Simulated scan of single mutants.
Amino acid sequence: MDCIFCSIVTGEKPGHLVLADATAVAFLDARPLFPGHVLVVPRRHVHTLTDLPEREVGPLFARVRRVAGAVERGMGAAGSLVAANNRVSQSVPHFHVHVVPRNRKDGLRGFLWPRTRYASQEEAEAVAARVRAALDEDPGEGGGTG
């Protein structure tokens, strides 16, 4: 397998590590949006969040939480953006979570925009119904609304 993130996880390739344990490795993004932009990756090679076994999601996001706090404190940031892509716009096919330090008026635009509105309440309910139906098809925990 030729995965740059796996090579960083194993130490085969260099990375500016900020956290490494049995669950995850976190390192500076080589092309940061801002200094302190960190990627948190599971040690296990999986392409997307939906490929990560459910029992590993909580432990991974516990590391993301720790890194987000450290990035904010370490970079003197007012907050952070925590985001992940699944397939579309995923430049490396190894699941990773971006933790980006943020400050008001920092110039970051277009990351999650433009935003739109549903044409009607009926359209919004139809979309919600499609997602609920897909949750009901999911063999994992938690489907539906209760």
Results as ranks from 00 to 15, higher is better:
W113Y: 07
G144D: 05
R109D: 06
R132S: 00
A68P: 05
R63D: 12
L49V: 08
G74W: 05
R117Y: 04
F111Q: 14
V38Q: 02
A78G: 14
V71Y: 04
A22M: 02
L81I: 14
A62I: 09
V82D: 12
S120D: 11
L112T: 14
T48W: 01
S91G: 09
M75E: 14
E72M: 11
R87A: 13
R66I: 02
V57G: 09
A128T: 10
R55P: 07
V57P: 03
D136N: 06
A20C: 07
A124E: 10
A129W: 01
G140Y: 01
E125P: 01
G79P: 03
V46N: 08
V38D: 00
L33T: 10
H98R: 14
V100P: 15
V38S: 08
A84H: 11
N103G: 08
A124H: 08
F34A: 10
L81Q: 08
L135R: 12
G58N: 13
G142W: 03
T50H: 02
V67M: 11
E141R: 11
L81S: 15
R65S: 03
T116D: 02
E137Y: 10
G58W: 06
D136H: 13
M75R: 11
L135K: 14
R65I: 08
D29W: 04
H94W: 04
F111K: 00
V131R: 15
D138S: 01
L108V: 15
P32T: 06
V64K: 04
F27W: 09
R31P: 00
H47V: 07
S80T: 15
D51Q: 08
G140W: 05
T48G: 08
G142T: 03
P93Y: 03
